[in-house]
Design a protein around this nucleic acid. Sequence first.
DNA 1: TACTTTCCTGCAAGCGCTTGCAGTCACGGG
DNA 2: CCCGTGACTGCAAGCGCTTGCAGGAAAGTA
Lengths: 347, 347
Amino acid sequence: MARIEDVARAAGVSTATVSRAMRGLPNVSEATRLTVSRVAAELGYVVSRSASTLASGRTRTVAVVAPFMERWFFAQVIGAVEAVLRAQNFDALLIGLTQPTDGKREQFEPDSLRGRADAVVVLTLPLTGHELDEVRRLALPTVYVGSSVPGAMSVRIDDVAAARLATDHLLQLGHTKIAYVGGEPEQRLNFTAPADRRAGWMASLAAAGVEACAAYQVPGQFTAAGGLDAGRALLALKDPPTAVFAASDEMAFGVLAAAREAGVLVPDQLSVIGIDGHELSELFGLSTVEQPVARQGALAAELALAALGGDPSHLHDHIVVDVRLVPRMSTGPAPRTRGRRTAVTRS
Amino acid sequence: MARIEDVARAAGVSTATVSRAMRGLPNVSEATRLTVSRVAAELGYVVSRSASTLASGRTRTVAVVAPFMERWFFAQVIGAVEAVLRAQNFDALLIGLTQPTDGKREQFEPDSLRGRADAVVVLTLPLTGHELDEVRRLALPTVYVGSSVPGAMSVRIDDVAAARLATDHLLQLGHTKIAYVGGEPEQRLNFTAPADRRAGWMASLAAAGVEACAAYQVPGQFTAAGGLDAGRALLALKDPPTAVFAASDEMAFGVLAAAREAGVLVPDQLSVIGIDGHELSELFGLSTVEQPVARQGALAAELALAALGGDPSHLHDHIVVDVRLVPRMSTGPAPRTRGRRTAVTRS
DNA sequence: TACTTTCCTGCAAGCGCTTGCAGTCACGGG
DNA sequence: CCCGTGACTGCAAGCGCTTGCAGGAAAGTA
């Protein structure tokens, strides 16, 4: 393939000039720039990323670190990040942290990013303190999505407020037996979403003078399958809740399925609300607290690029985007009857 | 950061030996290898990817090209590809082809991959002939997922057979008014899934002696929203179908929503089946033709790695993975009554 | 006219690895 | 005792760009 030298020779200038012309640096005359880019195009010249990186120290690559990129939220965010990066001719290097079967998450090796990325976008990830330190030590612009870490940038929603919004909605409908389906109790340093959402649920209940029964607190792994299990467990209780607040729409779908399975009518006998604004929540009539998912990804990418562009003004931004309650048919007034519910079996 | 020279000096060997030792090449004594790796670890030495790439011409990177990485199928595949690559210490470079608002897909520039990836995995993508040629010209191992291209490797399902399977299922239930919700009629060279699935549908009907009514053929953009529109259109017909075969589960969800919206009972008045095996299809009782999505991604990555490993035996593999029919509650016997259906409104 | 400035451009020294080729050393066979 | 063999290791020439510095021409100033 054509090298910069070929272009230089063909254009009758030095490689230095070609380099500068190709990158739009200011100290190149317009005439020269035109010649160079024409010649480059003719020769099909493409700058060698590795050579350019080696020489300049810049990679034009942003690492996107995410667990479970299969999940809706992550896929949306990654898509948005990638789009913004691509528009600026930056590359997105995907770093997935798949959970091996032994249950322990694969160790994240921030060191391996050294020299491979100019910035890092970390999606809601239960990092250990050690890992956080390592990321910090990389000294790369870093932006967290879905959680905030001191000293880095972040984009997120107010999880506590979002959870309160959802729970308040249920309270206003007259519910008092409100369950929470969330993540693992595990407390990783910056994996605050599950804890925060639970906190919001508790705060909301407390403000209404309702007791947060421990049995109404069920883990759902943030997956639909987990939500299904959680829903089953809740509906099997002696005194089942009349409403469920799931910390994600995917878990809420699981709860809906559990209800259908048990012949429990939604929303007549059970109200369900989630958080996310999942594409399918509208179709399935799931009430939810919608968050701007793609926008968070785009913002994260923009923050990273701004930092790379040398703009230091956002280096400590902690952007909190707004959420909004979207009531749909999965939430309704609390049932009047106080007695045991009768399971109604369909089909 | 530590350079290879620092390690060499500290270990008392040449950089050449360090380089070989770090990569596990055979011609290094075990003792030396141990010393080198110990010293490297102590110094926190990390090989510079760019220098190594520049010198060797190998990038240890596989480009993953995908449209809409937000969609379920793509997210799953990408996740699987990434996991396999990471396990072999390869990087996944995400190349998204977002559709700009003007409707035309962003031009894919295979040339830009030159020198940035050792192999390419292309996910079901409506490439133009020109783009296909360019990819071919890259002379990199290329594997297509979801479609096959002559001269490259591929992993896919038999779309025609999958569609027949779905349609046959409906026929066996006694349906004859079977609609097809698919993609755009647009015929891109290797974007054969929509056409193939439609062909399967037609073949199945033909084999059963049932006419494939043109009005029963509706585009659904392969999205839930598109499926909703399609479902609405079908249900608004003078003579609506009693069954719908959607070319993807996401579209099928849309059809289900349309039915609910119209008060049409599933499966009593309308049967719906999709293709995919979407995570939520089980929860929502959607009958489907399940395909091993993650496995296709993993296979694709493995093919790419095998080719990079110098194994030429798979260079022209066209792997076709099996699908299986998973009947659920969204499909049932065709309604007996031949007259107009009465819309039943719930809630 | 002589001297700054301003603008462009070229020189050449790297950036940090990889690898073909040429040793070096210890051994065993002739 | 000499030499062929293996098994390692080191030399040094790149890989294809970027960039600090210096040179040279054109334009402005005195």
